[in-house]
Design a binder for these strands. Structure first.
Lengths: 125, 125
DNA sequence: CAGAATCCATGAGGATACTG
DNA sequence: CAGTATCCTCATGGATTCTG
């Protein structure tokens, strides 16, 4: 597969291959490639889940980071938050349409990482 | 587009949708989704480039982070380093085959981010 | 030119406790 | 259950200087 063939959309935005520092894409990119952002989005890829389920799925995430990341993703219009007025409280999180688009890309990426993780010498000196 | 349809490869590795903390995929994922990792890889997507070109393309990267990220990507077998025995020194960086695979995925991701960055309210409170 | 080495600030992020 | 509030630590990562 020749990568250059897929560069089209990127070339339109960055004709010279330079990616500017202040660029808005950078901000969004930082959100969606953040450590927990990726895991939360793909955790939601198979349907809505509640807070406690997300904590279990994205193993190792702290309450603080889960809350923070969900807020960011919600502000970015990628995740939808729907609180149920019941006791005990119940809140479901789901992907928006835009979030689903993104999830498809991230699922490919994480899938690729999962497939190749073993082949790679990940000593961390 | 229905995301669940693409979950196959991921389901094989993580049948219950739980992504374990110690998992090797996590490490690799952190490398390739790191702030500068992404930019460097897509900067190399259109062919080999040298150190100084990469510094220009991935605007805002410090020398320290460029060196560090390149080393990590090289250890992961994604980037190839070829020093030329000339004076002044010249070093070219390129993607390995595996790196090209990954680049294709990241190009899609960054392209998506670039397309949608404007629609998103990125106040950062 | 392509880095390595050093120092240092900031903030990401974890642990804990508390609440509606 | 689904968060919020605080404190505190450690490591990310920037600026600077030096070198083959």
């Amino acid at each position: 597969m020749e990568v250059s063939a897929h560069l089209g959309p990127l070339r339109q935005r960055f004709p010279d291959g330079v990616f500017p520092a202040g660029c808005p894409s950078r901000v969004l990119l930082d959100h969606i490639t953040s450590k927990w952002g990726v895991l939360i989005i793909i955790s939601l890829a198979d349907g809505p889940h509640r807070w406690s389920e997300l904590r279990r799925r994205a193993q190792g995430v702290s309450e603080k980071m889960l809350a923070q990341t969900l807020k960011t993703l919600e502000r970015d219009g990628l995740v939808h938050r729907s609180p149920q007025p019941v006791i005990p409280p119940r809140v479901d999180y789901s992907l928006t349409d835009r979030g689903q688009e993104l999830a498809a890309l991230l699922v490919s990426l994480v899938g690729w990482a999962a497939e190749h993780a073993d082949e790679i010498l990940t000593q961390t000196p």
